[in-house]
Amino acid sequence: SAVIEKTREFFQICDTEGKGFITRRDMQRLNGELPLSADELENVFDTLDADANGYLTFEEFSSGFSEFMFGPGGT
């Protein structure tokens, strides 16, 4: 539950408007807040947006985060 809580916190950092999903513009907005370039943020968005529909849902975001925490197929 700590990981889910942390995932929710990070998702809210990105989804500042509380829409329930993250857009490419939301990621670009992080350019000043996180030490990543615009290209890297674009790359993160494309990597996490599994169905490539332009909307990064909480499920897609959390599966990317748990893979980061526990490795591929991490539980």
């Binding site: 942390k6 950092i13 030490p35 990543l36 993160v44 990597t47 980061f68």
Partner: peptide, 29 residues
């Protein structure tokens, strides 16, 4: 294999992204 290189680059950027979120959260009081 360029695909392998691309996947590794993506993983690196993802790690950077989540690590900077982690340090951003722990940095705040």
């Amino acid at each position: 294999d360029p695909n392998m290189k691309g996947a590794a680059a993506n993983e690196g950027v993802l790690a950077n992204f989540f690590n900077s979120l982690l340090s951003k959260k722990t940095g705040s009081p």
